[in-house]
Amino acid sequence: MPLSGSFSLRPPPRHPALDAARGFAVLAMVIGHTLHALLSPSARENEWVQHYWSLRGLTAPLFLLVSGWAVVAAMDRRTEGSRGIYGRLVRRALLLIFLGYLLRWPGWEAVQALGWSEALMAQLFAFDALQCIGASLLVGATVLSLARGSRIRTLVLGVLAVGIVLASPAVWQFGPNLPIALRQATGMDGSQFTLFPWASYFFVGSLLAWLLRMLRPGWPQGVVLAALGAGMLGATLKLPADWAPTSAWLVAFRVGQGLIVLAVANFAPVRLTRLLAPLGLLSLWVYLLHLPVVYGWAGTPGLSDRVGPTLELVPALLAGLGLLAACYAVARLLRRLRRLTFPWRPAATTVGTSFGRSQRV
């Protein structure tokens, strides 16, 4: 069977490599949040838990890498062209930003207690993963729509990928002079996923997708990704470690880890990656469902308050796996109901589009 181009996004079959990478990130995310909320202080000292804490920092960078790769794939659709898909990507980006801020809603009681104060504004406008992905998607789709020519796109994506992380220390120093909403979005300690430097992961993924678009999925792309990831990890391990939130070393280290995961997803047989791909396809739903359960929402307490850090490792793991299974089941049900309610609507363009439709090499 002949192999198609790596960015052919014509109708199925759908290659599950990136969906599998996202599925792995979803698994790590739900388990990590549950362990963080439920593990007792003694269980946190477990050697395996300590190793896991160091690895779970890869989850968000991996999501952003995959999202950046996906927007390039979506904008390169042969059937619609870049401008045809642009509107759908913008709507997707705005939806992600809205949902991200919705998850930050503290409830009317907290609003009344805090009043119209900076403390309330800081809580309402805290910048999390969904807002970061949505804003990066909006900028990336606009840049790819306006930029013409392979060299210009390469240059612009490269400047964004490298420039954002290099500018992060200066932006964080200038941040206190900005309005609090912009301060939270661009760089501030109160937000976990500020645009500087987190958006750089998104544009690294976009740049790689653009540079590797002529290679076939599977071994050709996997070898390049593995070589780049190993090279970046090797380079960072020779330099002094810097775990500061604006550290270029930390971004390079996480990018290297993410590329290794993407390479493994490319090398793995399709039958294996299809086990994780369904989680990746429903990653947004799982994200939206599990966070209120673990941490609560709008004044309703979650597991972190109802149970608290009291469980040992095995019960906490079982709770995490149970929560993951429940969220996945509800997400599948909601997707099916949506299809039954709106059968005429095409499938939405996701921020985790797969590599392409070709088979493994």
Rank of each mutant, 00 (worst) to 15 (best):
T142S: 15
I85M: 10
R183V: 00
L89S: 06
L155F: 07
G190M: 09
L146G: 11
L95G: 10
R88A: 14
M121D: 14
T154C: 07
R153W: 03
T79H: 12
V162T: 12
V139M: 14
G87W: 03
L178M: 08
S117E: 02
L94W: 15
F193D: 00
R78K: 11
L89P: 10
L182T: 01
M188S: 06
F98A: 10
Y86K: 05
R83H: 10
L138D: 01
V90I: 14
T194C: 00
V139K: 11
L102K: 12
S136P: 14
S145L: 15
N177Q: 05
S168K: 05
A170D: 15
A113H: 10
G100T: 03
S82P: 15
L102N: 13
G134Y: 01
F98T: 10
R91V: 10
E118N: 05
L103W: 06
T194F: 00
V143P: 06
M188I: 01
R83T: 05
G107Y: 03
P176H: 07
S191A: 00
R91L: 15
R78H: 10
E80V: 13
A129C: 09
R88K: 05
L96M: 04
L182R: 02
L166M: 08
L103C: 08
S117D: 03
F125N: 00
T142I: 07
L103D: 13
S136D: 14
V143K: 11
G134W: 00
A185W: 00
L124H: 04
V171A: 05
L182Q: 03
E118T: 09
V171R: 01
P169V: 12
F193Q: 02
I152Y: 04
S136R: 10
G107K: 07
Q192I: 04
A122G: 14
A141N: 07
L155G: 05
T142V: 09
G158V: 06
R183W: 01
A170M: 11
A122L: 14
C132G: 00
I164L: 13
W108H: 05
V159C: 15
A110V: 06
G190I: 04
L102E: 13
V159K: 09
D128I: 00
Y101V: 00
A119Q: 12
Q192Y: 06
L144R: 09
G140E: 08
G100H: 03
V159D: 08
R148G: 14
A170E: 15
A170Q: 15
G84P: 11
G175L: 04
Y86D: 07
Y86E: 06
V111H: 11
R92W: 11
I152P: 02
V171W: 01
T186V: 04
L178E: 09
F125Y: 02
L137Q: 10
L130Y: 02
R148I: 14
